[in-house]
């Protein structure tokens, strides 16, 4: 296992370097004056322009510029936003809990509904229930989630008036950020109704963001279960007269879960891409909306930092999933690459 982990970690290094290279080149590939892009100053005098070029290292050869960037990144310095003048890493870390809370709720929803639905569809293969699950999940998988969000807003916020349209918390409350998770912070703050307000703000974005992972997990669980249910050991268990719930829940599910865990892990990228759209629709103050706003404000250092951080995050989660996979499936861990 140790060997497997080391090999897997070793693969991460070139990928991370590649991502830093892309982030580095992003700024250099943008059309226009690098001073305007990086320092946000336009119309400066030629002397100041030359001085800034020197300060920012633009007079150096490209490889040296990259090395400097890499050193900065490794020390946690991602530069400053040209709009707010705040360090980008701080901005990201302030907004990230909102995205994390939303993503965790979405994946929780997807697993809590998708897993049992997938199992049930496999067990009742060929029934009306199975066919409806397949139809509904295919629709969910094909859903343009930005439209889905707008539809839910029309129905639940417009017609029924049940949920708020945007934000994380009603303006009536102010909650000191402790964990950054609104659900927890509102509980800690002891304000009457604050928790409910946070919950009502969270419901629609969670549903929207969770839709595609839910569909994918349900379908994956179904097909994994179908495969496992055809195995000899399941037949043996049946022949021994074990109760069906025991066969399904214990013998089959445990083996079917292996590919499902991978699928869940792979949803992280989907979630982060989905967060860009979901947060934009619901004005959710997370990193997805921040990235889109930064692109529109031409705050390119922020985009660069966000790109690097999000890609690193995806890589990290994929690493954890791979290690987890090796942990549950010995065949992977002992395979020589």
């Amino acid at each position: 296992m140790f060997r497997f982990a080391i090999t897997r970690l070793g693969l991460l290094v070139p990928t991370f370097l590649g991502v830093t290279l892309i982030a580095f080149l992003f700024i250099r590939l943008l059309p226009g004056d690098p001073i305007e892009i990086l320092a946000g100053e336009r119309g400066v005098s030629p002397e100041r322009h030359a001085r800034l070029m020197r300060e920012l290292g633009f007079d150096r050869p490209l490889w040296e510029q990259y090395l400097n960037y890499l050193l900065d990144v490794l020390q946690g310095d991602l530069g400053r936003s040209i709009v707010t003048r705040q360090p980008i890493i701080e901005e990201f870390l302030t907004l990230f809990p909102a995205t994390l809370e939303l993503s965790l709720c979405a994946i929780l929803l997807a697993v809590v509904i998708g897993l049992p639905v997938g199992i049930l569809a496999a067990v009742r293969r060929g029934t009306v229930f199975d066919h409806s699950v397949m139809a509904v999940t295919l629709t969910g998988y094909s859903m343009p989630i930005f439209w889905w969000g707008l539809l839910l807003i029309i129905l639940f916020s417009g017609i029924l008036g049940w949920t708020p349209v945007s934000g994380r918390l009603s303006l009536l409350y102010y909650v000191e950020p402790v964990t950054g998770f609104m659900l927890i912070d509102t509980l800690l703050s002891d304000q009457e109704g604050a928790f409910l307000s946070a919950l009502r703000h969270l419901i629609l974005p969670t549903v929207v963001l969770g839709t595609i992972p839910l569909a994918v997990i349900a379908r994956q669980t179904r097909s994994a279960m179908l495969e496992v249910l055809g195995e000899d050991y399941v037949r043996t268990a049946r022949a021994k007269g074990l109760p069906p719930w025991r066969i399904i829940g214990l013998h089959a599910l445990r083996n079917a879960l292996v590919p499902v865990v991978t699928t869940i892990g792979l949803q992280v990228g989907v979630l982060l891409a989905g967060a860009i759209l979901t947060e934009t629709i619901f004005s959710w103050p997370g990193v997805g909306k921040w990235l889109v706003d930064s692109i529109f404000r031409r705050d390119y250092p922020a985009v660069q930092g966000g790109l690097l951080l999000i890609a690193s995050l995806v890589m990290l989660v994929n690493l954890v999933v791979d290690l987890l996979y090796g942990l549950i499936n010995p065949r992977i861990r002992h395979r020589r690459a």
Binding site: T15, I22, L272, I276, L291, L307, A311
Partner: peptide, 15 residues
């Protein structure tokens, strides 16, 4: 290709 895959699709497209 690993690098390109590490970046969520929509984000890469936006960039």
């Amino acid at each position: 290709m690993d690098v390109l895959i590490a970046i969520p699709g929509l984000l890469l497209a936006l960039v």
